[in-house]
Amino acid sequence: MSGSGGWTWRHRAAPYLFLAPSAALFATFLAYPLVRSAVLSFYKSAGPDHEVFVGMANYAFLLRDRYFWWAVANTLLFTVGFVALELPLALGLALLLNHRRVGLKKFFRLAFFSTYLVGQVFVAVIFALLLGGRQGLVNRLLMDGGVIGEPVGFLTDPRWSMVSMWIAALWLMSGYGMIYLLAALQGVDQRLYEAAAVDGASGWGRLVHVTLPGIRHVLWFLVLVGAIGGLQLFELPYVLFGGSGPNSAGLTVVMYLFITGFEVGDLGYASAIGWALVAMIGVLAALYLRSTGLLREERR
């Protein structure tokens, strides 16, 4: 049995060895900066070498900082609109591609999904030219079609900034949602559809009473992913508008963190903004757990 004693020892040590590199990186580059960000949020700083303790002043200022609340309002508006538009669009695409009379499914799946691979910066560069000025393709098409007389200031008119962000974000993300929903649709029990047909349910009735309940977990998952992604929005508006946009109409929470910490140089206040973001996502996660928990009780 001496041999098996050797392997027990190796067997016991193995998980620690497998986890050691990850644990070392986790401690150094995640846990430590997290603690430092918490500590820094009580300091005012100008670059990493000049720090002055200010207690709760950063958080007190945060509460009455108009730019911060403007950024929060923008970010929430973007997130709510984005999720509300993305889900129906992605579901529509998935339902279309799941329809038995639609051909070339694999090709279309790839075509719709392909936009997701284009990084936010590249999407922003493309859409800056598509939407920008008189030269932009969108304005040219709309003017040639006689829809509008004068070019729309998608990137220069603050009233259009949010619309431009939604358009670019929907183009980027709808195919991603579609992939998940397509997989979910294929997992819905076909017998339920047959039963609904026997009951004489209409197409709409089948959608509301069979399809949507059958894929609700994936829908909730996409709401969560979309909301978390929306709250962290940064690159897309930053590159699209070349900054925070007209009248700061494209300012988001993460953009404000970036500008404060790395353009102005106050890492302390940037940390406080970061913790505000943590709080926002924490509230969202709590709401999510509650609502999915309620769903579970319904099922019983």
């Binding site: 900066p33 820094l40 970061g274």
Partner: peptide
């Protein structure tokens, strides 16, 4: 727990490191 943490909150601490 770490899965829900927005990575941007690490930026000031990471930059300092």
């Amino acid at each position: 727990g770490a899965l829900l943490l927005p990575p941007q909150v690490l930026l000031p601490g990471s930059y300092e490191l």
